[in-house]
Design a protein around this nucleic acid. Structure first.
Length: 585
RNA sequence: GGGCACGUAGCUCAGUCCGGACUAGAGCGUCGGACUUCUAAUCCGACGGUCGUGGGUUCGAAUCCCACCGUGCCCGCCA
């Protein structure tokens, strides 16, 4: 309803300005502060003051007079308050919100008929997922969900770096060392078992005598060359290592949950000839230079050259990524990539090169996040330093379980939680808290990992918002048990919501689709997380001030509809950022 | 050295892109209140800020521009 109302306000304002011969390039539409009753406002009068030769408040008055309120559906009146034009909502605005927000699909915007591929995580398949890179799947998955809500047709891809040196080292190490030489795995899972070979191989290369290292390097080089030459047996050897490790990583990621439609292997673009083919085209570009036996691109705006073909004639990661992105452009309308800030330069060069190859790079957007570091420094799979995501999730679930159990004695509600309920809540809250903590912050800000902070269940965290959902479900359950019907359609009576706390909640409900739209357009899922927090506040205030079940018939009906609308809104808002919405807790 | 990002209460963060009702909002912590009530993982109140610093643009700057300071990342024929 908010979106329709906003469109109406824009049209009306533009029309009024046109008929007054004022420019319409900046309508100055903004959200008014909380203590103003309007749903939207405009500060356009400031900008027009000079041209009109009047003070801003007078301009505002003139514009307001020009707007025909009777022609508006969702706006009752247009008032001025000093230089501001305030648009006050009509009864219909509230009534329609109260009805439509009860739909299970509330917040789902109309189909944009646009396909988007979102590539995220894409961590090298060398070992267990650690917290340093955990921002990627969480932000990536949340963004994918937000884009789906916003009406895009979304595919999630994990780009598998299976052609690099580290994978050749891994394959060599896996085939060379005996399990008896390795330490016990930290967990009974494929990637924890496998990473031991990788670490062993790397330390061997650092510590063994020159002759032994030379022999190992020769074997590693053979593997790399085998991949480059398209040798089937080499692909199978490497594939076994990659698929095994990836299988384990995938299970961890699914706990978040972060699932993928496709794991796209880098070697695919070597085998199908598209990397060679893109190299041929790159050589033809005006920016292509052949220096020191290697083919490079010399950009106008970027300091550093991009080498796309080594002196030995082999391709590089970015060369293959170019073929990968051309493939994305062939198959999707838009492409979004979630990358660490250490890949910024590479991403710029990629984009610039795609532009040179004649692609419309407006179709490509990149979301960067900064690494999560430990107080003592960065996390490394190779060195085995860092906090594993599995351990963080386990610990968070354990703490959530303790919280639930501690609270059992004080529970007023007599819904008798079963063991299963406790386990369900522990998972929903524990994982939700980790996820929420990550999505609610702007990804560009640095995070230093501290257990205590990561596991903080206090306000402004997932449980605070989840509790709102549980409370709403509790009321709806009681209502259902008492045989109260929840009014929909013509039966809803938004007029009966006279308390300001109830109206504020309804306004907050109405804003949800616009929040989804903004978060999707700007590729910033944290906007949805901020919204859930504000929404929870509005709900809790309403909860305190406005009893539902004990209210008189008419009020109860209206408030029940409001609670039902609040429940679907917060359930979907949490769903959009991938946080579970518990029905009780 | 160069490029990019970040710098808002003791701590963790919103707000910054698109300047306006901002005499800057939350939460944690501290202090003081509210459970015979639809679940207190809640709510209410108090204390707490030269929005890194200095200049500039503007009727108006946390928000735009410039310089500087601090922190992080990048500057490989690695990925």
């Amino acid at each position: 309803m908010f979106l329709a109302m906003r469109a109406e306000v824009e049209d009306a304002l533009e029309e009024a300005l046109t008929s007054l011969d004022f420019p319409t390039d900046d309508l100055g539409i903004e959200t008014p502060p909380d203590d103003v009753d309007a749903v939207l406002a405009s500060s356009v009068a400031y900008r027009l003051a000079g041209e009109a030769g009047m003070a801003p408040p007078q301009v505002a008055g003139t514009v307001a007079d020009e707007i025909d309120e009777t022609a508006l559906t969702y706006i009752e009146t247009v008032e001025t308050q000093g230089p501001y034009l305030n648009f006050l909502p009509s009864e219909q605005y509230f009534a329609e919100t109260l009805d439509t927000a009860q739909s299970d699909t509330y917040g789902q915007l109309s189909d944009r008929e646009t396909s988007v591929v979102i590539e995220h995580t894409s961590a090298n398949p060398t070992g267990p997922v650690h917290v340093g890179r955990a921002r990627n799947p969480i932000v990536g998955d949340a963004l994918a969900r937000v884009l789906e809500y916003a009406g895009y047709d979304v595919d999630r891809h994990y780009y598998v770096n299976d052609a690099g040196r580290q994978i050749a080292v891994f394959t060599w190490a896996y085939e060379t060392f005996e399990e008896s030489e390795l330490p016990e795995p930290e967990r009974d899972a494929a990637e924890y078992e496998m990473v031991r070979y990788y670490r062993k191989g790397n330390s061997y290369l650092e510590e063994a005598d020159d002759e032994a290292v030379e022999a190992a390097e020769a074997e590693i080089q053979t593997i790399l060359q085998g991949l480059e030459d398209g040798d089937e047996e080499t692909y199978e050897r490497v594939g076994e290592v990659v698929d095994t490790v990836l299988g384990g990583m995938r299970e961890t990621l699914e706990r978040l949950p972060a699932e993928f439609d496709e794991f796209v292997k880098e070697t695919r673009f070597m085998r199908d000839g598209s990397t060679d083919e893109v190299v041929d085209r790159l050589k033809e570009l005006d920016e292509a230079v052949y220096e020191e036996d290697a083919w490079q691109l010399d950009f106008e705006d970027i300091e550093k050259n991009l080498v796309f073909l080594r002196a030995d004639g082999t391709s590089l990661y970015t060369t293959r990524d170019l073929a990968h992105h051309e493939w994305k452009f062939d198959n999707y309308d838009e492409a979004v990539t979630v990358l660490g800030e250490d890949h910024k330069l590479q991403a710029e060069q990629l984009k610039e090169t795609l532009e040179l190859l004649g692609h419309d790079t407006d179709r490509l957007s990149t979301v960067h996040y900064s690494w999560v570091n430990l107080p003592e420094g960065g996390m490394s799979t190779r060195e085995g330093t860092g906090v594993m995501l599995d351990d963080l999730l386990d610990e968070s679930i354990d703490r959530a379980r303790e919280e639930v159990e501690d609270r059992l004695g004080e529970r007023i509600r007599d819904d008798e939680l079963t063991e299963e309920d406790i386990e369900r809540i522990a998972h929903q809250v524990g994982i939700g808290a980790v996820r929420y903590d990550v999505v609610s912050k702007q990804p560009t800000k640095g995070i230093t990992f501290e257990w205590e902070r990561a596991l903080d269940f206090e306000a402004q965290s997932a449980p605070y918002v989840q509790y709102v959902h549980a409370r709403a479900c509790g009321i709806l359950d009681e209502a259902s048990a008492a045989g109260h019907e929840i009014p929909t359609g013509e039966a809803v009576d938004a007029d009966a919501l006279t308390e300001p706390e109830a109206e504020d909640l309804l306004r907050s409900i109405a804003a949800f689709p616009a929040v989804i739209e903004e978060a999707a357009d700007e590729r910033r899922p944290h906007i949805v997380a901020t919204y859930t927090r504000d929404f929870a506040e509005a709900f809790n205030t309403f909860y305190r001030e406005c009893p539902v079940l004990d209210a008189d018939e008419k009020t109860r009906q209206a408030r029940l509809a409001l609670v039902a609308a609040a429940q679907t809104t917060i359930a979907n808002a949490l769903d959009a950022i991938g946080v579970a919405a518990p029905e009780s807790m």
